[in-house]
């Protein structure tokens, strides 16, 4: 080794290049956080969006089928509308109270009297309808 080469080597050795513990831990942390490109490429890409879409679709289809099945089961099990014959006069006749609406008629004015008459007529109609219904059902 010539004089210059020796001097260059010796002088380079005097340059302090100690790796501090802090730098060492920084480097270790950085290395632990990454992986070589070759490893990354070898790993199959996770096709999460496609699988997520597939799972969602299957769930939707399953839910639809379940609803259809439930509806069909309900339709089958539902009893057909059967007209039942109920024996007449099995229930006692319903007593409908008759209101005495003429008590204060003398004090009413003309329009109010007409309104009262209308109400009485409506009440009578309703009474007839009710009686008809009761007669049909029972």
């Amino acid at each position: 080794m010539d004089k210059l080469a020796k001097r260059l080597r010796e002088d380079a050795a005097t340059i302090d290049a100690e790796i501090s513990a802090q730098l060492d831990s920084r480097i270790q942390a950085s290395l632990a956080a990454i992986e070589p490109e070759t490893v990354r490429r070898q790993r199959k890409p996770r096709r999460r969006p496609v699988s997520f879409w597939l799972a969602s679709s299957l769930t939707g289809v399953a839910a639809t089928l379940a609803v259809i099945a439930v509806l069909n089961v309900v339709d089958v099990d539902e009893p057909a509308a059967v007209s039942r014959t109920v024996a007449d006069n099995t229930m006692p006749p319903i007593e409908i109270p008759v209101l005495d609406l003429d008590v204060e008629a003398a004090t009413l004015t003309g329009p109010l009297a007409r309104e009262l008459e209308d109400l009485q007529a409506d009440l009578k109609k309703a009474e007839e309808v009710m009686r008809g219904d009761v007669r049909i059902d029972f």
């Binding site: 340059i15 290049a17 730098l23 920084r26 480097i27 950085s30 290395l31 990454i34 992986e35 070589p36 490109e37 070759t38």
Partner: peptide, 26 residues
């Protein structure tokens, strides 16, 4: 240290060098 403008830069360059070397070792 002979190529950077500060000790901190040299340390950063060393860290980047090792990271790149590991990442692209393939």
């Amino acid at each position: 240290l002979t190529r950077c403008s500060s000790h901190a830069d040299a340390e950063d360059a060393l860290q980047d060098t090792l990271i790149n070397a590991y990442r692209y070792i393939g």
